[in-house]
């Protein structure tokens, strides 16, 4: 019981939005330490989100760089409103969509490949989880799951970034989690990893 509640507390720990917004304001003065801080706090969330759109590790990494550079260069133009997350993630979303468009134009469709292959350095459990997530969920479901689990967004915020109404976000999230649990449990019982 104790372990469960400790894990519950950890997973509920969200990004401190005030801290993130302060970093942006400092970045507007050219403070690169603030850039490093905001990066540390948010880069996994941004990466996960881009990955959910692009399903390609290299592309998501490119978008990761572009997003923070853009954030830094335009920090002076940011108007503080208490919640900087939709701003940051809208930048990431648009870079991701542009990358997707470029890929379509160049006729590259790597979607059938496993996201993380046998040669990846990721632990096996993580690899299996992420591969399953990418294959089993629809595009919207992937985005919603990433934003909720990794970025700690509330469902309403997810609606803001994805443009979906709150009720849709809620139902898709629960359906997605249900699909994932089912797929992972079936995989375990049949011995596959």
């Amino acid at each position: 019981m104790f372990i469960c509640s400790a894990m519950a507390m950890e997973s509920r720990r969200n990004l401190n939005r005030e801290e993130v917004e302060d970093c942006i304001l400092q970045m507007a003065q050219g403070d690169k330490d603030a850039l490093a801080r905001i990066y540390e706090m948010t880069h996994a969330a941004v990466y996960g989100f881009s990955l959910s759109i692009l399903r390609n590790a290299q592309d998501a990494e490119d978008v990761l760089q572009e997003t923070y550079l853009q954030l830094y260069h335009h920090a002076p133009a940011y108007r503080p409103n208490g919640n900087p997350m939709p701003y940051l993630f809208t930048i990431a979303k648009n870079f991701s969509l542009m990358k997707l468009r470029d890929r379509k134009k160049a006729q590259q469709m790597p979607e059938d490949d496993l996201l993380y292959g046998e040669d990846s350095t990721l632990p096996a459990e993580d690899r299996h989880l992420l591969n399953t997530l990418m294959q089993v969920l629809s595009e919207e479901e992937r985005q919603i799951v990433m934003l909720h689990c990794v970025a700690g967004f509330k469902h309403r915020e997810i609606g803001q970034v994805t443009g979906l109404p709150l009720s849709t976000v809620l139902s898709k999230y629960h359906r997605a989690i249900g699909k994932l649990r089912k797929q992972l449990e079936e995989g375990e019982s049949s011995g596959a990893l």
Partner: peptide, 19 residues
Amino acid sequence: YELELKIKRAVEHATPDVL
């Protein structure tokens, strides 16, 4: 919540450091 945490950890492990 166990699954949510695992997803979060997996992505954190997978995220490259490009700072």
